[in-house]
Computed example of a mutant assay.
Amino acid sequence: MSSPLKALCGVLVAVLLTATPALADQSIVEEPAALADPVRVMPLGDSITQGGSIGGYRLDLGTKLRAAGRTVDFVGSLSDGPSSMPDRNHEGHPGWTIAQIDANVVNWLRTYTPRTILLHIGTNDMYGSDPAGAPRRLSALVDKITAQAPSAEVFVSTIIPIRFADATVRNYNAAIVPLLRAKAAAGKRVHVVDMYPAVPVSDLPDGIHPNAAGYSKMAAVWFNALSSVPGSIGDPNPPQPGGPCTATPVVTGSWNGGFQGEVTVANPTASTITGWTVRFTLPGGYTVTQIWGGTASGSVTVTNALYNGTINPSGSTTFGFLASGSGTPSIGAPTCSSP
């Protein structure tokens, strides 16, 4: 090899060696930005917040929040509800009074640091020794919450009816509303939620606790209240072209040994969906015996029928089914995917 050619090769090698670090840097794939943390919501209260084996209002409220594209994490030291319920945490303590919640709330707030609090409390005070003092105790509890967590959004509801103590409940609700509004007017993040008229006595089998229909009505009131306060449940996930579909379930009827359910499949994106698959769970012991508007397999996967696989932007379709079994009817939070 001639000396000029050797020199040229040496220069090229030197350039490549010098450029290697820069080329290597360009080949690194950056990690995607982390998704926003879920908004921490603490359901707080007594057995009406706990909700028994059906998960109370928390079941339907979680479904509504997910369907609306909200990323929320229920927080608390307790966990109850059906196994199909995706998020079962809460601070609903059966039998507890306002004073008992007051004695423990600071520790819970420090431990779980909720962004939003849903407080329904006072029912057990209504047939205690001092129902007349309950508004004062609630006011002190809310002051303690706002002092410990001044940036949290605190939603405080009137309590639902009690069949055998309606006058006492009405007096309590009438007394707490102006107290709460005064706190809001003073700049505290306190929001009054009027829950009393949402649940009729006919939805209270034992005169105190709601059935599934009553809890569903409570969930709707909570959801509307949360949706009216920016930031309390974060921002909805914006639709993305070609993104996934959504599925919203509802139990439309039930009887001894079975129930009927419907699932609305919606397209929130800017592109037409062609074909969809919805997956959900049923309580243990339940099986699908009949379905329309889709084809079922496994436990439970439903694909579109020939006539409803195409969903235009902002459009929707519905499939329904019958399920047989025993226990409380419910539909586990569904997922929806499209090609």
Score class of each variant (00 low, 15 high):
M1Q: 07
L8R: 05
L8Y: 01
C9M: 13
V13Q: 04
V15L: 09
V15D: 08
T20I: 05
T20V: 09
L23M: 13
L23W: 14
D25N: 11
Q26S: 08
I28D: 13
V29Q: 03
P32K: 08
P38L: 10
V39N: 06
V39G: 06
R40I: 05
M42I: 03
P43S: 04
P43I: 06
D46P: 07
D46H: 12
G52H: 15
G55C: 00
R58A: 05
R66N: 11
A68R: 07
R70P: 08
L78I: 11
S79Y: 07
S84I: 15
R88A: 04
N89L: 09
G92I: 09
G95N: 10
G95A: 02
I98W: 11
Q100T: 03
I101C: 03
I101H: 04
N104T: 02
V106R: 12
N107A: 15
R110P: 02
T116F: 11
L118E: 10
L119P: 00
H120F: 04
H120L: 11
N124C: 08
N124E: 09
Y127N: 07
P131G: 07
P131E: 14
P135K: 14
L138Q: 00
S139A: 10
D143C: 07
K144G: 11
I145C: 03
S151A: 12
V154A: 10
S157G: 06
I159Y: 07
P161M: 06
F164W: 04
A165W: 13
D166E: 13
A167L: 00
T168L: 04
T168K: 12
R170E: 10
A175W: 05
I176P: 14
V177D: 09
V177P: 04
K188L: 00
R189I: 01
V190F: 05
V190N: 03
H191Y: 06
M195I: 06
A198G: 03
V201E: 00
S202Q: 07
P210Q: 05
P210W: 04
N211G: 00
N211D: 00
A213S: 07
K217N: 12
M218D: 03
A219E: 02
F223N: 12
F223W: 10
F223E: 06
S227N: 01
V229W: 05
V229P: 00
D235S: 13
N237K: 12
N237H: 09
N237P: 07
N237E: 15
P241V: 03
G242P: 11
P244Q: 14
V251Q: 02
T252Q: 10
G253W: 14
S254D: 12
W255P: 02
F259R: 02
E262Q: 14
E262G: 10
V263W: 13
V265C: 05
N267E: 06
T269Q: 06
T269W: 09
T274D: 12
W276R: 03
T281C: 08
T287I: 14
Q290E: 12
A296Q: 14
T303V: 13
T303N: 13
Y307G: 08
P313Y: 09
G315I: 10
S316V: 02
G320L: 12
L322F: 13
S324Y: 15
G325N: 08
P329C: 06
S330Y: 10
I331C: 02
G332E: 08
T335Q: 11
S337I: 01
